[in-house]
Write a protein that binds this DNA or RNA. Structure first.
Lengths: 213, 213
DNA sequence: TAGATTGTTAATCGATTAACAATC
DNA sequence: TAGATTGTTAATCGATTAACAATC
């Protein structure tokens, strides 16, 4: 844990976690890095290197215990403790996220939903009443919210992000198609859907070109 | 265009495109790699290296013409031609995507929405009537659809992806929290929201640990 | 022309893969 | 014990950054 773990490693952890969860559901007790590497289409070497950033979870001659490893990665990812979140932006995307129950199962608890549109305020979403963003500051402070999910249009996002930092938010899951400019005390994880679709477009074009040749 | 472009470079292109679009909106005519690097918080060297994978778009002593560069990157990303897509899964996520008009502006045209739930089939979403997935095969073939957006639960996704390949789909934008196993003739771009949220969770925990020390 | 900035080569840095001794 | 597989070091590969000649 002493050395700085690279972001490339961290982004692979949820995928390991997902595969181990599936193995667990299938009743598999142990797995070697080689077997797992074949399923996941990565090298066994990479799996062992990645895991050894956090400790020796395996056993020579045996491999890894699926349940133990699953739990350990969960702990590394911070899933053993609950997180309180608010969703800002009660549109379809906000609704999709709040209704996706897997997040709550993993300890991400949606405490409130906020919007600025009077037509939306007062509606119920997934048993939560949509509140006015004017009340957001007070809510964050009183309920000690750590994480804000930003499912709002591009225009308001940057200034709202700065407000969120002032109000004590520690992490922003940002779906607005813009880069936020908060201090490095606030963790930002971007989901830029447009960027993703353009990447798909490039790869599709590239594949077409190869076929032609 | 001869050398294989790395995925790291490709994933940066939409971000350049976004920043250049903003500059264009602001009426900025030219920009140097240095100025852009300061805005984007990357090195000027990286910008020049990235762009020179695709050609020399700049001019010594001047920099880059914003409009030209914007258009060139658009072409590289394949945005100059229209794409026909279908959305499979008419839930909130599917609705969020179809209603987000920026995609259509960029040439991604939603030709159909499909679902397997009889309660949803027949509903109208963004002026499109939700059809039965049973009719998907015929629709893809007759309308020559290239891209499928998969906003369905995990369980059905892998087998559906294999069907989509058989039916002629060339690219899948996958929101199901599972890896698809199609041939390399089909381009897959994953948006794993759970993975993203877990990554955020890790980074948040990591930041907390640093503060304590 | 002089100054600015690119395009591109070279140097550095970091991440991935290979190899193997340690050990269960 | 013998076989298997890890943990970890070393080698390789690739990506990023630095430097600078070319040139507008």
């Amino acid at each position: 844990m002493i050395n700085k773990i690279s972001i490339a490693v961290i982004k692979r952890l949820p995928r390991y976690y997902r595969y181990l969860g599936d193995l667990l559901d299938d009743g598999i007790v142990r797995i070697s890095s080689k077997e797992l590497s074949e399923k996941m289409k990565v090298t066994a070497s990479q799996i062992r290197q990645d895991l050894n950033n956090f400790g020796g979870f395996g056993q020579q001659g045996y491999g890894y215990n699926v349940e133990t490893l699953y739990e350990e990665i969960g702990k590394i990812l911070g899933l053993e403790k609950k997180h309180s979140l608010v969703i800002i932006g009660a549109g379809n995307l906000g609704q999709a996220i709040i209704k996706y129950t897997d997040f709550e199962k993993r300890g991400f608890i949606f405490k409130g939903v906020f919007d600025s549109n009077p037509k939306v305020i007062g509606n119920t979403m997934h048993n939560i009443i949509v509140q006015d963003v004017a009340d957001l500051k007070e809510f964050i402070k009183s309920k000690n919210i750590q994480i804000a999910v930003l499912t709002i249009p591009k225009s308001n996002a940057p200034e709202l992000a700065n407000d969120l930092e002032k109000w004590g938010i520690k992490a922003i899951w940002n779906f607005a198609p813009v880069d936020l400019n908060v201090s490095d005390k606030v963790t930002v994880e971007n989901v830029h859907l447009s960027d993703s679709l353009m990447t798909l477009s490039y790869k599709l074009k590239d594949a077409e070109n190869k076929t032609k040749k």
